[in-house]
């Protein structure tokens, strides 16, 4: 079987499995998985830049928040219906990521991390500064009537799950497709050896910028979807820990693998959910697990699987 065929089977299989799970999961896990799929979209967006292009951003919360507020504020103040609001969220993230990418890509390495961190911090403070509209740290609720997308009430568990699944599937397919295209191969080449890629005649900066935009837009789509599906818009999603989360999810699941972000997000979600039932030091448990994984499974869960057993994993 060719790599492309395997990719189709793998991703089709993952989507089918997620589709089937909604019929068997108990209510709690059903709800969790809907949330996890949205967050996994965020992780996939992050993975496009970190996992495939090799750029470590510490400011992705800005893109997530751009999507979230792009949707939330247009609903709250311009009376947008959910579909144009969703589009507004995605476009906001696209614009923000294009601007941030354009400026931040003048730097590399640690400087890039710091510049993206600063941008995200500036974004966070901007949300607080415009508290009149954003209600700052407190945030605001998107009420049930405003969450009916094209006649589908996204506040019911089944519809919410389905909406999350559709978004997740679209982004998974985009990711799987992009990394198979010549463009995606160049991103991988930049990750592996930027100088070499440049000396093969590729415009490294342009490729990186497009990667930032795809990554940021996907992250923003997750932010907009989170607001729409869970009814809350708040500044905490723009805070620094929400820039760290996707990094952790991707590291856990496997950077530069298509399904790693989903696996990492599920793993981390249940790690916290289960350990918080045992002790209030659950972040310590999460931290120790992360350290162990980075020591003994450097490539993340899916990455190790690829290394040890399934080298064809995309």
């Amino acid at each position: 079987m060719s790599a492309a065929a395997k990719s189709v089977w793998l991703h089709g299989g993952v989507i089918t499995l997620l589709f089937a799970l909604q019929f068997v999961l108990p209510a709690y896990h059903h709800g969790n998985l809907a949330r996890i799929m949205v967050l996994a979209v965020y992780a996939m967006g992050y993975n496009m830049l970190f996992g495939y292009t090799g750029l470590l951003s510490l400011g992705h919360a800005l893109f997530f928040a751009a999507g979230m507020y792009g949707l939330g504020l247009t609903i709250a103040f311009l009376d947008f219906a959910p579909s144009p609001a969703l589009l507004s969220g995605i476009i906001s993230a696209l614009i923000v990521s294009a601007v941030v990418g354009f400026l931040a890509l003048r730097t590399t390495g640690v400087a890039f991390m710091i510049v993206t961190l600063m941008f995200a911090q500036a974004g966070f403070l901007t949300i607080l500064l415009f508290g009149e509209y954003t209600r700052g740290d407190e945030g605001f609720v998107i009420q049930q009537p405003e969450r009916v997308l094209a006649g589908i009430d996204l506040t019911t568990p089944g519809n919410r799950y389905f909406a999350a699944l559709i978004l997740f599937s679209v982004c998974l397919i985009i990711t799987a497709r992009v990394v198979q295209t010549p463009f995606g191969k160049v991103l991988i080449a930049i990750r592996e050896n930027e100088d070499r890629a440049r000396m093969l005649g590729y415009d490294v900066l342009r490729h990186k910028l497009i990667a930032v935009i795809i990554s940021g837009t996907m992250s923003g789509a997750a932010g907009a979807a989170y607001a729409l599906l869970f009814g809350y818009v708040g500044a905490s999603f723009a805070a620094v820990q929400y820039s760290i989360f996707p990094l952790l999810w991707v590291l856990l699941g496997g950077a530069g693998t298509t399904i790693g972000p989903l696996v990492g997000t599920i793993f981390m979600f249940y790690l916290i959910d289960l350990s918080s039932g045992l002790t209030s030091a659950y972040m310590l448990i999460a931290g120790v697990t992360l350290v162990l994984l980075t020591l003994f499974a450097r490539q993340g869960l899916v990455g190790e699987l690829r290394k040890r057993a399934l080298p064809w994993l995309p």
């Binding site: 740290d137 407190e138 009420q143 049930q144 506040t155 019911t156 568990p157 009814g231 809350y232 708040g234």
Partner: peptide, 12 residues
């Protein structure tokens, strides 16, 4: 902010 984040879910 936790109330705001949680209340929609409680309602649903």
């Amino acid at each position: 902010h936790v109330v705001f984040g949680s209340a929609p879910r409680a309602g649903e």
